[in-house]
Amino acid sequence: MNNNVYKNYIFDFYGTLVNILTDEKDPMLWDKLAQLYQAYGAAYEGDALKKAYAKHVDQARKELMDLKGVAYPEIDLAHIFNQLYIDARPQSSNSNQPEDWGKLIAMVFRVLSRKHLTAYPHTKEVLAFLKEQGCRLYLLSNAQAAFTNAEIDLMALRAYFDGIYLSSDAGICKPQPEFLKQVLDDHGLKPSETVMVGNDLTTDIAVAKAVGIDGILLNTFPYSRRELENSPIKPTRVIMDIEALKIGFT
């Protein structure tokens, strides 16, 4: 597109639109989760729960990789947390386990591990501007639906998007080409009119290149100049602030 202007913008979420910090290694996190499991009759200690979780995640990813025949599978953590309960209560069909247990624990896991979550400066301003210009906006995130949907709403960003795609729903994640291609196919988006905007070369920019669309790197990591120069994955454009997406509109 001329002047770096596109009709369709596909955004990454974490590290692109919002800044988040989590600590999933904190022993206190696992101790508190274990206490919640204990309250419903599943006898876990914090460290044992953490190890069992890691084992289930690794096994589930391998199984999904084989099942789907993909290099980049994405599991649903709600299923993992539910299986952990079942493992500890094999005869628990009549237990006091609440409905949607896995989703509940996934949300608690996120709330306890999240240190901060804020929208980057200019995020809402630029999304609103692009909508005013008649652009269509989509979200494509390597993320867990069990808690990312709540965080999208917490940041009041849902209304800006014409479609939201989360990897745990799809069973695959960036840079698996089919994940991005689904957005193009579902909405009839022309590759020449569409751009992927994200903060990660190996996922966001790589998946854009894989399906033949432009990729804009919003360099929030940030990558150093040397890293950008030496990377085999080259973005169409590098910007330091999302506000740069407004350039080119008249």
Rank of each mutant, 00 (worst) to 15 (best):
Y6W: 01
Y6A: 05
N8P: 11
D12R: 00
Y14P: 01
T16F: 00
T16Y: 00
L17W: 00
L17Y: 01
N19M: 11
I20R: 04
L21F: 10
E24C: 12
E24T: 14
D26N: 15
P27Y: 00
L29R: 01
L29F: 04
D31L: 14
A34T: 05
A34E: 06
Q35G: 15
Q35Y: 08
Q35S: 11
L36P: 03
Y37T: 07
Q38V: 13
Q38L: 12
Q38D: 10
Q38A: 12
A39I: 07
A39K: 10
A42Y: 01
A43Y: 07
Y44G: 13
E45Y: 11
G46A: 09
D47N: 10
D47E: 14
D47W: 04
D47T: 12
D47A: 15
D47I: 12
L49C: 11
K50A: 14
K51T: 08
Y53W: 07
Y53P: 03
Y53V: 09
K55T: 13
K55I: 12
K55Q: 13
H56E: 14
V57F: 07
A60R: 09
K62P: 04
E63S: 11
E63W: 03
E63R: 07
L64P: 03
L64I: 06
L67V: 11
L67C: 12
L67K: 14
L67E: 11
K68I: 15
G69I: 10
G69E: 03
G69N: 04
G69C: 09
A71V: 03
A71W: 00
Y72P: 00
P73K: 02
E74N: 02
D76A: 09
D76V: 06
L77R: 01
L77G: 02
L77Y: 02
Q83E: 12
L84P: 03
L84I: 06
Y85V: 08
Y85N: 02
I86H: 01
I86V: 13
R89K: 11
R89A: 15
R89C: 15
Q91T: 14
S92R: 03
S92M: 08
S93I: 15
S93F: 15
S93C: 12
Q97P: 07
P98Q: 05
P98F: 07
E99K: 05
D100V: 01
D100Q: 09
W101K: 05
G102F: 05
G102V: 08
G102I: 08
G102L: 06
K103E: 08
L104V: 09
L104H: 04
I105S: 03
A106F: 02
A106E: 01
A106N: 01
M107Y: 10
F109C: 05
F109A: 05
R110W: 12
R110A: 15
V111M: 10
